[in-house]
Design a protein around this nucleic acid. Structure first.
Lengths: 242, 242
DNA sequence: GGTGCGATTATGTCTATACATATCGCCCTT
DNA sequence: AAGGGCGATATGTATAGACATAATCGCACC
């Protein structure tokens, strides 16, 4: 057990007092000079701790006025981007993808608005332990992602490949519910009108649309989990170039 | 237009090169000494910029080895905590809450596990322009939130009040779909079996459970929108104590 | 009593320096 | 040739000091 650096200790001490409610929103934090005396260190060290707290949104700093505990932000949740293959495997089930359709459209249909033609249409179902779990209809811009033409998605899903092989800058998810239509119901082997969780995802690189996908999950078989973001502590490994 | 501080400019310059793809994941960033020369500043200034990038998860820093661009994290979405009243009002509809049930339980039922008794049970529906939109069943720990006993929720929803008046440290949402059961269907005025989006939220303060709520949204009438998180730029105002 | 301006305060930014620490790679020993 | 020790490198942490900037407080003046 190694002692953390001083600025981290100051940071943690203040964070603790805020989280515990001892310092309520609006409370004024002692000025840097006071903390400097309390911890017996230089002002830069205190400043580093307070700046980090400000970056994290826990406190707000105002010149001359001082540093104040922010109102609980309470507005951000963090949701993992669903990678179905990985998640299903992680919960101990066998994952499979079955491709139902693959064709190139030379004009962009309305469902894929925002993608420049030609576009690739992929339709398939995700299965867990052999049981259909979700249906997806996907459009991919072949101008934005030319490499996808060479990929074989008859058994592995295009979503994971895209997320890992094509750079993107923005994504938007719309999450809702819908009754299964005839096509989806048939593909999933359920009655028409069955409740489904729907996830619609758009991905862009700058202003250029990359892909648009609409997924239907059988109700009760899949959930999205979102947690309040206390800290972004993801420690990804650096990895080698390529 | 005022010039941003130097460390912010260095930060932005490097972020730009990473986001644009010029520096791919795994690329080694010039060492601090090189950036120091490039920008004609002290190492501490470069260090501040790089440390911030590391905190933000864009780069990883290793002693002796250098600083490297992280793999695209691509795993975080930001979801707004739904505040129904505000959202419905924002889209130009009239919002209303109708309380269906309110009672105090002196033993914690299974549905509210994690909350210490006594617990308050609240059931009601959210309406937009007079039409039922969502049903919610909520449990609140009266030991964790004693103040709620004095609140009148016959017309305004408990969710907003709780989020704004009780401090909490953690929240978890489970988002799925379900067919409406008899009770929910009757309350919403739809046929049993209608598709619904379900949102289940648990909130804690430390280890103490505060509230648990299960909401059913009529399919097609409500969506959650999640965007990729480019930056956590929320600038909340400090507010005065109280 | 209201108003404007200067003094004060607290944070923001930056420098130059120092020492600590982890690690890579080379050289020397065995 | 295998392995250990050691120096070079790059980051990590911290200090003391300096000047800049924003905002508030209080006093002087009208």
């Amino acid at each position: 057990m190694k002692a953390p650096p001083l600025h981290a200790r100051i940071h943690a001490a203040i964070e603790g007092r805020i989280m515990s409610g001892e310092w309520a929103p609006g409370h004024r934090i002692p000025p840097e000079s006071a903390l400097m005396d309390e911890y017996g260190c230089a002002r830069m060290t205190v400043n580093k701790a307070l700046s980090a707290l400000a970056d994290a949104g826990l406190i707000e700093r105002r010149r001359r006025a001082g540093s104040f505990v922010c109102r609980p932000r309470a507005r951000n949740l963090v949701l993992d981007v669903p990678d179905l293959a990985a998640e299903i495997t992680a919960r101990g089930q066998a994952y499979a993808f079955r491709l139902l359709d693959r064709e190139v459209w030379h004009r962009t249909p309305a469902e894929a608005s925002g993608l420049t033609a030609p576009v690739l249409r992929l339709e398939g179902i995700h299965c867990a332990d052999g049981q259909p779990l979700a249906h997806e209809e996907r459009w991919v811009s072949l101008t934005a992602v030319p490499g996808i033409a060479a990929q074989d998605f008859t058994t592995s899903p295009p979503g994971s490949w895209l997320l890992h092989h094509t750079p993107w800058t923005e994504a938007e998810h719309r999450i809702g519910a819908a009754a299964a239509g005839a096509g989806v119901a048939a593909a999933l082997g359920v009655a028409e009108g069955a409740a489904c969780l729907t996830v619609e995802r758009h991905t862009w690189r700058g202003a250029e649309g990359i892909t648009r996908v609409c997924q239907h999950f059988l109700a009760g078989h899949y959930e999205l989990v979102a947690r309040f973001a206390p800290r972004q502590g993801g420690s990804t490994r650096p990895g080698e170039a390529g």
